[in-house]
Amino acid sequence: MRKTYRVLAIAAIFLMSMVLVACGDKNDESDNAADNNNNDGIGEKDITLGTDDYVSNTSNTYVAKLLLEEIGYNVEITQTDVGVEYTGLADGSTDALVGAWLPTTHKSYWEKYKDNLEKINTVTEEVKLGLTVPAYMEDINSIEDLADNKNDIGEKLEWKITGISPGAGEMKITKNEVMPGYGLDKWELVESSGPAMAAVLSGAIDKEEPIVVTLWTPHWTFNKFDLKILEDPKGTFGEPDDVFSVARDDFKDQSPAAYKFLKQFSIEQEDTQEIMLDIADGMDEEAAAQKFIDDHPDLKDEWLKGFE
Rank of each mutant, 00 (worst) to 15 (best):
K3C: 04
L8N: 00
A9Q: 07
I10P: 02
A11E: 03
I13L: 10
F14T: 14
L20R: 09
V21G: 00
A22E: 08
N27M: 15
N27H: 13
D28H: 13
S30L: 14
D31G: 00
A33I: 10
N38Q: 11
G41S: 06
I42K: 15
I42W: 06
G43S: 09
E44N: 12
L49P: 02
L49W: 09
G50V: 02
D53G: 03
V55T: 14
V55I: 14
S56V: 04
N57K: 08
S59N: 08
T61C: 00
A64N: 02
K65S: 04
K65Q: 13
L68G: 10
Y73P: 04
N74P: 06
N74L: 08
N74Q: 14
V75D: 10
E76S: 15
D81I: 01
D81H: 06
G83P: 05
G83M: 02
G83E: 02
V84G: 06
G88I: 03
L89D: 01
G92P: 00
G92A: 01
A96M: 05
V98E: 04
G99D: 05
A100K: 07
T104S: 15
T104Y: 14
H106P: 02
K107P: 02
W110G: 05
E111D: 10
E111G: 00
E111L: 03
E118L: 01
I120S: 03
E125P: 00
V133W: 09
N141G: 13
I143D: 10
E144N: 13
A147T: 08
D148R: 11
K150E: 11
N151R: 10
D152E: 13
G154D: 01
E158P: 04
P166H: 12
P166Q: 12
G169A: 08
M171I: 15
I173T: 11
K175H: 11
N176A: 11
P180L: 04
G183S: 06
L184Y: 11
L184W: 09
L189N: 09
L189V: 07
V190H: 03
S193A: 04
A196M: 06
M197R: 15
V200H: 09
S202L: 01
D206L: 12
E208D: 13
V212L: 05
W216H: 14
W216M: 08
P218I: 00
T221Y: 12
T221A: 15
T221H: 08
D226K: 11
D226Y: 03
L227A: 07
L230V: 04
T236C: 08
D241P: 04
V246F: 04
R248C: 01
D249H: 01
D250H: 05
K252H: 03
D253M: 07
Q254A: 15
A257G: 07
A258F: 10
A258T: 12
F261E: 11
I267Q: 06
E268C: 00
T272Q: 07
T272P: 02
T272K: 03
Q273T: 08
I275D: 04
L277F: 03
A280R: 09
D281S: 12
E285W: 14
E286C: 01
A287Y: 00
Q290G: 05
K291Y: 03
I293D: 05
L299E: 12
E302D: 15
W303F: 12
G306S: 01
G306F: 05
G306V: 00
F307M: 06
